[in-house]
Design a protein around this nucleic acid. Structure first.
Lengths: 191, 191
DNA sequence: CCCTCGGTATACTGATCTGTGAAGTCCAGA
DNA sequence: TCTGGACTTCACAGATCAGTATACCGAGGG
């Protein structure tokens, strides 16, 4: 679903501009005219490629989700120690935060799009479930007992660090330390 | 600052309508015409009372912050055991979530108002600092060592539970359990 | 009695929003 | 050389946005 390849060169420029503008300024506050102008494309082309603003928003979130999952997956896969792999998403978050300093694009999107039938809700929920399932998978591989509860707690820590990011309270290090301690404690109970 | 008393009866009706509409539907998506109509007041009266939409938004956030702090403060004060007091804000969150199911109004507001000079940023940052300071205060009273780090971790847990709330992943119980375990472990190290 | 004050009612300005219509340009491939 | 498709250009519709202007109304107080 929603491969990048389905878009033309102009369509990809539109998507790139939409990613930056929607994330930095908010979805409702950014009009299609601005996205078209910023990507050097006419509004007609934008509508020919995406059909509507809602579909462009959905494509923006889908593309961002794809990039983020690729980063997390590769960070996890690079870990030799299965214990490190469990908290690898927090390392990925540190890297991700170098360019994204306005919190979670999906949480932000849900704040602006209250209609629960909007496709953005499905994308957002699926992303968080994916991360929780990844935590379960890694915790199981590391031999942690009760991986489901641990995974939920790690997810909350991850989302908390992400949500407090725009407030400049410097929470990521303390959060990562806590996540590591939790995993070590859980694995230590049995191993 | 921003006392409720400074508003007339019509002004308070406007503020009540604004609270509900801005939180449920988003700030940018809700126009002043709708707020005026919903509160049974003319747009002229709304502008006489609040001056501009930005100031109405600021009043909305300030009022919501006031109500939330009162709930948290009273929940903390009701605790006989100082150890329970540290995690009392999580009990308050459970109560708060009975009526607020769309996440943190301040995080949501920041998502829509990217201008860092907007007063909403000050209100949001002050609120989170206030909670962190409350955690520090309670953790110190409970005899926890290193209350600053513990407070940051509890803040992240709190914000994570709040941020994942609209995703219906049922995270609050596991988060509260973890917070209690953290506090007990910290206090147990010295006590 | 009259005057002020908070509110109502209604109409308006000028800007901006999403989305469409119609005609013209450019270029690759048959 | 012709054709088809992607793109541009420009104009426009219809709605909605924040905010203002003008006139009116009723109650309370001097």
């Amino acid at each position: 679903m929603s491969e990048v390849r389905q878009f033309s060169a102009a369509g990809r420029r539109v998507l790139a501009a939409a990613e930056e503008l929607f994330y930095e300024r908010g979805i409702t506050a950014v009009g299609v005219d601005l996205v078209a102008e910023r990507s050097g494309v006419t509004k007609r082309t934008l509508y020919n490629q995406f059909g509507s603003k809602d579909q462009l928003v959905t494509a923006y979130l889908g593309e961002r989700d794809r990039r983020w999952r690729a980063l997390v997956r590769s960070t996890v896969d690079d870990c030799a120690d299965p214990l490190d792999a469990v908290t690898a998403p927090f390392e990925a978050l540190r890297e991700w935060s170098r360019t994204s300093t306005r919190g979670c694009a999906f949480v932000n999107a849900l704040a602006e799009l209250p209609d629960p039938d909007h496709p953005a809700h499905r994308v957002a929920t699926e992303q968080k479930r994916w991360l929780r399932d990844l935590f379960v998978e890694c915790a199981t591989a590391a031999g942690c007992p009760d991986p489901a509860i641990l995974a939920t707690q790690l997810l909350v820590l991850h989302e908390g660090a992400l949500a407090t990011q725009p407030l400049a309270l410097d929470t990521l290090s303390a959060t990562t330390d806590l996540a590591r301690a939790l995993v070590r404690a859980a694995a230590g109970e049995t191993g």
